[in-house]
């Protein structure tokens, strides 16, 4: 455990700031995601969670500050380049190819992971490696029975599962998940909680989530974002006990 590699953050932001006109969406945000952990990011609506996620994943360039993935600065890289370096992202609103089958969506992930999408001749679904990798990911989230189903015909919960499966095909070094529980029923939410619990051993997860039960069950650390600013970072107990957090966000619920 004294290996320095084990103590370096997998994903890190240093002093990220972003303003949109008069709105300061991110204010000097420094976060780390350590190996093996689930770091939850919570905050009220409009706190700037999505803006932060975009800056980490590559959709938005911060005005100031840097993003590091496995010690390498990725601030200037676009989304595809960050994905190739090992950032696996899931979306709050499922971003899936709805006309395609479940398997095709998973194969797309495997194709991205292969790094060779510019092949024009052999059938994508005939490629054993791509297919195996895709099916493996589908099995892990329990969608193997639906491989041939058109994605548009999946239930909301199944789309959430597929969203995670596509990220799994990349075998990322770090996951960034934007409200994976959104819209799931209690059962689905519990199942996904169990799955993410095991997943952290493979790659740490930066988890944006509104479902407090899931956050308190999963998170090793929690950061609280309010008006673009991290007002507290700590363990579940520390965050629960923090008076600023209670007044700003958790309110009477906690």
């Amino acid at each position: 455990m004294t290996d320095p590699m084990m103590t370096d953050p997998v994903l890190e932001t240093r002093g990220i700031s972003k303003t949109f006109g008069a709105l300061q969406a991110s204010k000097d945000i420094s976060l780390t995601l350590m190996p093996g952990e689930i770091h939850a990011l919570i905050g009220p609506n409009g706190a700037g969670k999505s803006t932060l996620i975009k800056q980490i994943a590559g959709g938005l360039r911060p005005d100031a500050g840097q993003v590091f993935l496995q010690g390498r600065e990725v601030t200037g890289l676009d989304t595809p380049a960050r994905a190739r370096l090992g950032l696996g992202r899931t979306f709050q609103i499922s971003a899936l190819a709805m006309e395609d089958t479940v398997l095709q969506n998973a194969v797309l992930g495997a194709l991205g992971a292969s790094g060779r999408p510019f092949r024009f001749w052999r059938a994508a679904l005939g490629d054993k490696d791509l297919r195996a990798r895709a099916q493996d990911a589908l099995e892990r989230v329990g969608l193997q029975e639906h491989a041939a189903t058109r994605t548009a015909e999946l239930s909301h919960g199944q789309r959430r599962q597929l969203e995670v499966a596509v990220a799994l095909t990349l075998r990322p070094k770090a996951f960034v998940m934007d409200e994976p529980m959104a819209g799931l029923g209690t059962g689905g939410s519990l199942r996904l909680t169990g799955f993410l619990d095991g997943l952290r051993a493979e790659a740490p997860i930066l988890l944006v989530e509104h479902d407090m039960d899931a956050v308190f069950a999963l998170a090793d650390r929690i950061s609280v974002l309010v008006y673009g600013e991290v007002i507290a970072t700590g363990t579940v107990e520390e965050i629960r006990a923090n008076p600023d957090v209670r007044s700003a966000y958790l309110g009477d619920e906690a």
Binding site: A57, G58, G59, D78, T79, P80, A81, A83, R84, G88, R89, F91, A95, L96, A97, M98, E99, D100, N105, L108, G109, L111, G112, A113, G115, P117, V166, A167, T169, L170
Partner: peptide, 12 residues
Amino acid sequence: QTAERVETVGIS
């Protein structure tokens, strides 16, 4: 169908 998804799997 979804350019965002394609980007996040590492394809431009």
